[in-house]
């Protein structure tokens, strides 16, 4: 039972870190995409959306190759941190960030394209700096999109299975997340413990989605977006 609690804790830690990192990466990326006009834009959008449709094992397979100690990324990581990226918690975080990227970028991209940019013009004429315009204008006006992006990446990371299995394996306390522990229990015929994890995940996911829909009622259009 204590290993299950460890798995729950590890999963929550992974989801929280991935969501946080993703918001930091996806906000400038989505902003840049919403301003960028180029014929290559569709290709960039497609690349970002790839994890939505790729089987997680495909993504996991390529990440595993990239994390290997004899590869460029994996080798460099080994040099700096003195441990392998594959089958480590850090590897899982990087994998989750790639895997959940579209779930963070797409709501923010929608929010930014719908934002009436003239509010920012008003801020500019008030001589507000970039950071002030972000915190005083963009953040509150796109609040619901930020909540959806954070909530979706969090929930999606918790539901991860294929990628984790490929790049993380099943090391308790290091890479064994809830979905893997559940799989383990079923393999072992421990249905009682499997029920606990499965019903817990089900209830949690349901509640999280309810909260997201509640936050996003009207898609944030209760304010005057164009």
């Amino acid at each position: 039972m204590s290993s299950d609690i460890t798995a729950v804790w590890l999963t929550l830690k992974l989801a929280a870190m991935s969501s946080l990192i993703l918001l930091v990466i996806a906000t400038p990326l989505a902003w840049w995409l919403s301003c960028w006009q180029h014929r290559l834009k569709n290709i960039v959008l497609a690349v970002i959306a790839l994890p939505l449709i790729l089987p997680p094992t495909v993504l996991g397979f390529y990440l595993l190759l990239a994390f290997a100690p004899d590869s460029l990324i994996g080798g460099a990581w080994q040099q700096v941190f003195d441990h392998s990226l594959a089958f480590s918690f850090s590897g899982l975080v990087i994998g989750s960030v790639v895997y959940s990227l579209p779930f963070a970028v797409q709501p923010l991209y929608t929010g930014f394209t719908q934002l009436d940019r003239r509010f920012l013009d008003v801020g500019y004429t008030f001589k507000m700096g970039r950071w002030a315009r972000f915190t005083q204008i963009i953040l509150p006006l796109c609040q619901s999109y930020f909540l959806v992006a954070a909530g979706l990446t969090f929930a999606h990371t918790i539901g991860e299975f294929g990628v984790v299995l490929m790049i993380g394996g099943n090391i308790p306390g290091e890479t064994q997340v809830i979905s893997i522990a559940l799989y383990d229990h079923v393999e072992m015929g421990e249905y009682y413990r499997a029920h606990w994890l499965a019903s817990g995940l089900l209830l949690f996911s349901f509640l999280l989605l309810c909260v997201l829909y509640w936050c996003n009622r009207g898609g944030g259009r209760q304010w005057n977006f164009r």
Binding site: D116, R118, F119, D121, V122, T125, F126, K127, M128, A132, Q136, I137, P140, L141, Q143, W223, N224
Partner: peptide, 28 residues
């Protein structure tokens, strides 16, 4: 120069009250 512009549309920040809109302009 500090050049102010009053737009054709009022463009008041919708998440703030009138007083907060005015305070924001005053703060900068």
């Amino acid at each position: 120069c500090r050049i102010g512009l009053v737009f054709q549309e009022p463009l008041l920040l919708p998440h703030q009250t009138v007083a907060q809109n005015l305070t924001l302009a005053q703060r900068y």
